[in-house]
Amino acid sequence: MIISLNGFVLNDPNSVNAAYLDEPIEGLGLPPIRTSSGNYSGRDGGYVGSQFYGMRLITLTGQFFGTPATLETTRRNLAAAVATSSVAMNITTNAGNQYLVNCNIDSLDMPILRSINQAPFKISLIATDPTIYDNSASGLMSVTVNPARGGGITWPITWPITWAAGSQPTTVNNTGNVTIYPTITLINKMTNPSITNQTTGQFFTLTGLTTTAGDTLVIDMKNRTVLLNGGSVLPFVTSSSSWWPLLPGNNSINLTTADGTDTTVATVSWRSGYRGI
């Protein structure tokens, strides 16, 4: 397994770092589970409430090898790579699969030993988002959703008669085994757009919002932001709206607007994810 931390490569014999990992690599299985539980009063047994995944703690231990000069340089380079507000942990498994974990540094220990050609290290990382994302080219998914409208003719009738084709909700397939919150981008003219995940029954609606050709509306379901051309339009979000996710498997996504002349289309983007490797 090859791991890189903000570009600093570990466990790769072709890397100039000569930094190799020891066993075990901890924290890449199922993340900690937060459980609300208690005992029944006056009778046997107890209850378990809702369960949620907690933050993921990842521990990497290993050794640097090289001359005294290269060891010192490598140690400095590793410290500089992880001493940031966020750490992108890229993983390539022995099977050739690629994953991404978004982390923060918890600690980095690099004790100095008597040996002049070897030095140990231990890195602890915290992943506030416990999802391990598919970092392959096929893991980044994007599906276009057109407004769902009924077919037929427009009244009053104008000649020549145009019989418009109807459109149905779009099927979006989340190929991972984790519920994922997507980013939805809508462009061009729209009036009171509403986008619904019919599989979960949740919808996201903006009332009183009207845009024109060339405008871009970005709904980030994970970070709970709505930006029109870069500026927040959260006040237009209805109180009954939900920041909805994509369930594993097929999801039926429906886009509607209030004006039949609207030209908007939506792009639903996400990266598939897993609970463990």
Score class of each variant (00 low, 15 high):
Trp159Ile: 14
Gly176Met: 03
Thr191Asn: 07
Ile157Gly: 14
Ile161His: 04
Pro182Gln: 05
Tyr181Arg: 07
Leu206Arg: 03
Asn173Gln: 08
Gln168Ala: 09
Met190Phe: 14
Val178Ser: 02
Trp159Leu: 15
Val172Asp: 08
Pro182Cys: 05
Pro169Asp: 03
Thr183Glu: 10
Ala165Gln: 12
Val143Ala: 04
Thr170Ser: 12
Ile195Leu: 03
Thr162Met: 14
Gly151Ser: 13
Thr144His: 01
Thr170Cys: 11
Thr211Gly: 01
Pro182Ile: 13
Thr207Lys: 02
Thr205Pro: 14
Pro156Gln: 07
Gly208Arg: 07
Ser194Trp: 04
Ile153Cys: 00
Thr179Glu: 09
Phe203Leu: 08
Thr171Gln: 13
Thr205Leu: 09
Ala148Arg: 11
Ile161Thr: 09
Pro147Cys: 10
Ala148Ser: 13
Val143Phe: 07
Ile161Ala: 09
Gly176Arg: 11
Gly152Arg: 00
Pro147Tyr: 12
Gly151Pro: 13
Ala213Met: 08
Thr144Pro: 14
Trp155Lys: 00
Phe204Gly: 02
Leu209Trp: 06
Ile153Gln: 03
Tyr181His: 06
Pro147Glu: 05
Gln168Arg: 13
Asn174Glu: 00
Trp163Asn: 10
Asn192Thr: 08
Leu209Asn: 04
Thr191Gly: 07
Thr162Val: 15
Pro156Tyr: 11
Arg149Gly: 00
Thr162Tyr: 11
Ile187Cys: 15
Thr179Asp: 09
Ala164Met: 06
Ala164Arg: 10
Thr144Cys: 00
Asn188Met: 00
Asn177Trp: 04
Thr154Ser: 14
Trp163Glu: 02
Pro193Trp: 15
Ala213Gln: 08
Thr162Lys: 13
Thr158Gly: 15
Leu209Tyr: 03
Thr144Ala: 07
Phe204Asp: 01
Leu186Tyr: 00
Asn173Ile: 08
Gly152Phe: 14
Gln198Asp: 05
Gly176Ser: 06
Leu186Lys: 10
Ile157Asn: 09
